[in-house]
């Protein structure tokens, strides 16, 4: 890892990532504000919004219950979007954009190697992943506190969800890194990432909605992040941990290999 490049990444992306990372916390706060009014209408809402819930959040966990409602900061589509965006910003700007406008050429002509540059980008994502994980937990806490039900929330299970959020964020960040290494332009990398994330999200929704498509959850990291199982077990499911962390590490390794295989920086 290179300390000067790490500081450069921090200086360049800290504010943006802090702001993007606030999204899960805000979602939690909003849920906390509306929860007292909709918890009284739970039965009606369950009946009306069931297909919606099933599509976006599965039917294993009732999002109108205390233990389910405050999982929204972890899995709301906007949270997922913020994680994807947050994970992509450093790679899109400090790799693709700099490659496009020549800044990377000057950096790579310095003593830093391609491998160390990518490793520094990977290392940079560790504290950012922790910030996103913290933000989701903070969102759940703020929401539950605003709703006055924080004592009813299974915090140990939520801690496990938060840990998986860090892994999921890391997965998206590493996917972005690979795509940015492969593309010549930021727009191309961004477009490919958007399509891939959309397909992964579709796969996750389909696996929740149609019983015959449950197998799809194994091809998307959003399927590996099993919220209901985590809440029931109050622990990070081993399969989730292994799949998310293993494939994120694999993607990081691929990014290094592909960057070193590039003929021109």
């Amino acid at each position: 890892m290179s300390a000067p490049v790490f500081r450069f990444l921090l200086r360049r992306h800290a504010v943006t990532l802090l702001l993007v990372g606030m999204a899960p916390a805000l979602i939690g706060a909003v849920v906390g504000i509306v929860f007292p009014s909709y918890s009284g209408l739970r039965d009606t809402l369950q009946a009306v919004a069931r297909p919606f819930q099933k599509l976006f959040f599965g039917d294993q966990l009732d999002i109108f219950s205390v233990s389910g409602a405050f999982t929204l900061p972890f899995r709301h589509p906007l949270s997922i979007l913020s994680m994807t965006l947050g994970g992509a910003i450093p790679a899109l700007n400090s790799l693709s954009l700099e490659r496009e406008r020549g800044g990377l050429y000057l950096l790579m002509a310095s003593p830093i190697t391609r491998t160390r540059y990518i490793l520094t980008m990977v290392a940079f994502q560790v504290p950012v992943a922790l910030w996103f994980a913290g933000s989701t937990l903070l969102g759940a806490f703020v929401g539950a506190s605003l709703a006055g039900v924080s004592h009813e929330v299974p915090w140990q299970a939520y801690g496990c969800l938060s840990a998986q959020t860090a892994l999921l964020y890391g997965w998206f960040a590493m996917l972005s890194l690979v795509l940015c290494v492969l593309a010549e332009e930021r727009n191309v990398a961004g477009r490919r990432l958007a399509i891939l994330v959309f397909l992964l999200y579709l796969a996750a929704m389909a696996s929740e909605y149609w019983k015959s498509m449950t197998w799809l959850k194994w091809i998307t990291p959003l399927g590996w992040f099993d919220v209901a199982k985590t809440i029931h077990q109050s622990a990070v499911p081993l399969s989730s941990f292994l799949l998310l962390s293993g494939s994120a590490l694999g993607l990081a390794a691929l990014a290094i290999v592909f960057e070193n295989r590039r003929r021109f920086v």
Binding site: P4, V5, R7, F8, S110, P111
Partner: peptide, 9 residues
């Protein structure tokens, strides 16, 4: 300058 000073020592 700080970035490249760090990289080159």
């Amino acid at each position: 300058l700080a970035l490249f000073r760090g990289l080159y020592g």
